[in-house]
Design a protein around this nucleic acid. Structure first.
Lengths: 360, 360
DNA sequence: CTGAAAGCGCTTACAG
DNA sequence: CTGAAAGCGCTTACAG
């Protein structure tokens, strides 16, 4: 019946109300052994007061913050019209984050999300600050160099996605080589295509390297040509894929039998630009993707691609981080999840949509 | 040249290395007055050591955590096929979050993102924990009841989005009434439609209430009928819109001249289901949305809708929260941003796409 | 099982 | 402008 002061509550208030010491309150709150009636009194006091412990104080006393920081790159709004809100479509990174979220939720962790601009070449500051606010870091592809990762990983647990494992950090990726081998084999052996162009992602990303190599290997085996090089260089974005095709067509360069895109997003740009020029997929040229992002099945024509278990990749990354944080048995340094070829229409296979697709 | 122990660095290490007291280190780090040479020595030590201050300790000493928590609802995967990864498309909430992020970035804040399941009716626990880890909360629509908001807002700064302002919290919303009046007037006065159905969102959400009222008012003025009621009740999701239309058609109930959807996402489901049944938009029935989410312009037919400044809404919410946190002059309790009618083809207007749209 | 007390790593009056 | 010291709100050996 007394009006409590609007001051923020501490464990002392709870202790006073429950008639016990702050140590007991702390123990009950953390589920340590204590007499049932002590528990009751503390819990009642907590409930009546609406007490919420200070995360900062817990963390300072050596407890976990129960926060994992996730860092990813976000494209600045690109200037060119059509794909200018490319970053506003749900792509790979977003699905990945949902997977991480699912993993985090299961452990009662919250996620500190931090995007760094594509053009920010020294996100060290941001990442340092995140390290101070979290128990561990999950870094998407291309956020930090291997050296940068190694440095940060010495201070705080780090898991990279589609990166490279270091001495101290764990990497989670999917089996790019397997997926690309299956896809390439389908194209050259299944369809008999003789010329494949590889529309690359960031040339130095491990994913991109692995995909190129697998493609070239299988194609060489089957005696098919692979076109690569400067002009076929994209950036994992739809706008990049569109730009490459525009350039090719402008210069009236020949098209291959199939354009193998580094990822689905690139394929979206490619198919769009081809359509603009009246070039039909797959009749005039086959196009394939990589990832199987949700929109892939709503495209025209429906995209043949390699499915990565995107959400699972995210959840696995969190689990690995959690193991690192809690000092559980160290997870493998390089965790590889399986991929799967998904044949739809854009490779030239007859394809009947399994169900209705979104109106478009 | 000595190997430092792998122990985590503190301000004491920096002080020792710089040959000053920890107080001086703290001052330099926080940009307070100090002699240039003190600054230099401290900064050098910080750099050489790679020191990152403990967020927990700063927070415990009464400093800001520089973290804002954002809570939003996320639909659990719905069981029905077509829209089952509805939550995997970039919709309203995601764009809103990007706006919040932009605002936060400008102030050096990080965002603790936390989604609560649609069916979680007591997210108190999660929200309590977030309150302990952040300087303030931004709550999306329908996360907490007004009473719940009021309670939390007594402990920590709170800004709600599309909610209701309380004594302690600030609300940010857009001008639903204005937008809906414009839209309705366009339909009844511009097109002369006599019957409008309102496909509702969550019946008790303030947005939904405001939209219904505005619609009914303008329609009544023009002598047009508005159909509402149980059968026209949706849930802001595409699957909800689809379900309503399916039911209507199953029972062979009549269609109105125009279906005014509570939001764009609902309209997507509506247009999809109409198309399935061979009913043409806008020839057989006009359809409109609300929000102008990015995909709205890629739909067939292109959606006439009311544009909310979604990103700006998010950024404004953060700014209001920041004002609350820093004790700046208190922002208005109810901040209202303008809306704008966007006429495209789905209302029956002749409409020539301004530019190319995504292939589909 | 419980309480008194030290300690986590910072910030900030308070003297100087 | 600088340093010694108190204090932020918890957790956890250490005694009892």
């Amino acid at each position: 019946m007394t009006t409590d002061p609007p001051r923020v509550l501490t464990i002392y208030d709870v202790a006073e109300r429950a008639g016990v010491s702050i140590a007991s309150v702390s123990r009950v709150l953390n589920g340590h052994r204590s007499r049932p009636d002590t528990q009751d009194r503390v819990m009642s006091a907590v409930r009546e007061l609406g007490f919420v412990p200070s995360g900062a104080a817990r963390a300072l006393s050596g407890q976990l913050k129960e926060v994992a920081a996730v860092v990813f790159r976000r494209a600045a709004d690109s200037p060119d019209g059509v794909f200018s809100d490319e970053d506003e479509s749900l792509m790979f990174a977003e699905v990945l984050n949902r997977g991480i979220e699912a993993g985090a939720r299961a452990r009662g962790f919250d996620l500190l999300m931090s995007s760094v601009d594509v053009y920010d070449h020294s996100p060290q500051g941001r990442i340092g600050s995140l390290a101070g606010k979290s128990d561990g870091l999950i870094l998407h592809d291309k956020v930090l160099s291997a050296v940068g990762v190694a440095r940060v990983a010495r201070r705080i647990p780090v898991v990279t996605l589609a990166g490279t494992a270091t001495e101290e950090s764990v990497n989670v990726r999917s089996d790019n080589a397997f997926g690309m081998r299956e896809l390439t084999s389908h194209l050259v052996n299944g369809h008999g295509y003789q010329t494949l162009a590889y529309l690359a992602g960031h040339v130095d990303s491990p994913d991109n390297v692995a995909r190129t190599e697998a493609l070239e290997l299988v194609a060489a085996d089957a005696g098919a040509e692979v076109w690569t090089g400067e002009i076929w260089r994209g950036n994992y974005l739809a706008s990049g894929g569109a730009a490459v095709i525009s350039r090719i067509l402008e210069r009236a360069l020949p098209l291959p039998n199939a354009i193998v895109c580094a990822n689905d997003q690139t394929a979206i740009g490619v198919m769009f630009t081809l359509a603009q020029h009246g070039i039909r997929v797959p009749e005039d040229v086959a196009v394939t993707g990589f990832d199987d992002i949700p929109v892939a099945r709503h495209l025209h024509s429906q995209l043949t691609t390699v499915r990565q278990p995107i959400k699972k990749l995210g959840a696995t990354a969190f689990d690995a981080l959690y193991a690192l944080i809690t000092g559980a048995p160290r997870p493998e340094q390089d965790i590889v999840l399986p991929t799967e070829l998904v044949v739809r229409g854009s490779c030239g296979c007859p394809f009947e949509p399994a169900g209705p697709v979104l109106p478009s």
